[in-house]
Amino acid sequence: MQRSFLLPYRFKPVGAVMMPAGLIIWIWGQLKLSQDSIAKVFMGIVPENAHLLKVTILVISFFSCLIGMFFLVFSKEKEEDEYVANLRLKSFQLAAFVQMTFFLLAFLYIFLFKKELSGDAGLELFLIASILLFWFSYISCYQFVLIKNKLQANEE
């Protein structure tokens, strides 16, 4: 049976490290990293360079998270077989359902409470959130079922 478009297994552990690390650094950068805190670490840095450094950290961490997620989702298992292929399909179905529900509820909320998205940035954030929700739902479902089945099989 053909299992196309999947990376070798060695990409999975790389993704498992890159995705959470990138996400944590990105959230930390958004919440805690300011030009003042950069100036404290790099004494004498000019404000423009501090801003550039912050943007660089945020961009690198965000793309690390995305690439890590790509590796995690699109790499083979150690033993890739039809059960895993079936689980991938079921997880995609669940993720699509979660995303569609999110879309419907979000638009219903906007319509009922007359809450407009604040400009292009608001729309971008909404779209990024819905895309990430899809992939997080997929990874959560897939890993949960796979790990649960492995644990139960090992208990026997």
Binding site: Y83, N149, Q152, A153
Partner: peptide, 18 residues
């Protein structure tokens, strides 16, 4: 040519094989 987890899933009725 499958994993042990797949055999477990089939035996417990969690997965219907092709």
């Amino acid at each position: 040519g499958v994993s042990r987890q797949t055999i477990f899933a089939i035996e417990t009725g969690k997965y219907i094989p092709s």
